[in-house]
């Protein structure tokens, strides 16, 4: 008689455990979703480091203005900039990104993103005044 009750008791427990695990999985998944952030690493110019970079032949300068990008003095679209950056594909290439103070965050993020996509990791951000 006692044993029969124990058997009945086990059924709601296991379904409840199922519900608990579903809840747990739900919370873990929703938590992961919110952290879909990329962290774009850049280097800031250290004081006195300007001289060291003079001798390096592999240097690319990109100038960023508000919704405008300049490559070696000529205005380029984001697509042109992307294909140019992709044509380098050289992890040793140092990219110097000169950003105007009037530019907005997405302008910089776009360039950093393209560099990341092209496998360029040596990114230096300089401010244009």
């Amino acid at each position: 008689m006692r044993k029969k009750y124990d058997d009945k008791l086990a059924v709601p427990m296991s379904s409840m455990i199922d519900v608990v695990f579903l809840l747990l999985i739900y919370f873990i998944i929703t938590q992961r979703d919110e952290i879909s952030e990329a962290h774009l690493a850049i280097n800031l110019p250290a004081p006195g480091s300007a001289k060291a970079s003079e001798n390096k032949p592999q240097l690319l300068e990109v100038e960023v203005f508000e919704k405008q990008y300049f490559l070696r003095g000529t205005s380029v679209s984001l697509e042109t900039l992307e294909s140019t950056l992709n044509s380098f594909r050289n992890p040793d290439l140092t990219v110097i990104i000169k950003v105007s103070i009037n530019a907005k965050a997405p302008d910089l993020v776009n360039v950093l993103d393209l560099c990341q996509g092209a496998g360029l990791t040596k990114l230096n951000v300089v401010t244009l005044r």
Binding site: E37, L40, A41, L44, P45, P47, S100, K104, A105, T127
Partner: peptide, 30 residues
């Protein structure tokens, strides 16, 4: 923020560089 002028970001980066923290990351949404 997507509407933050680089000027404001620059001010933060200037302070970081002044202290000697040169490795900075900028967060973006994927």
């Amino acid at each position: 923020d997507g509407n933050t002028k680089f000027d404001y970001i620059d001010r933060v980066m200037q302070r970081a560089a002044k202290i000697g923290l040169y490795r900075v990351r900028i967060a973006a949404m994927v």
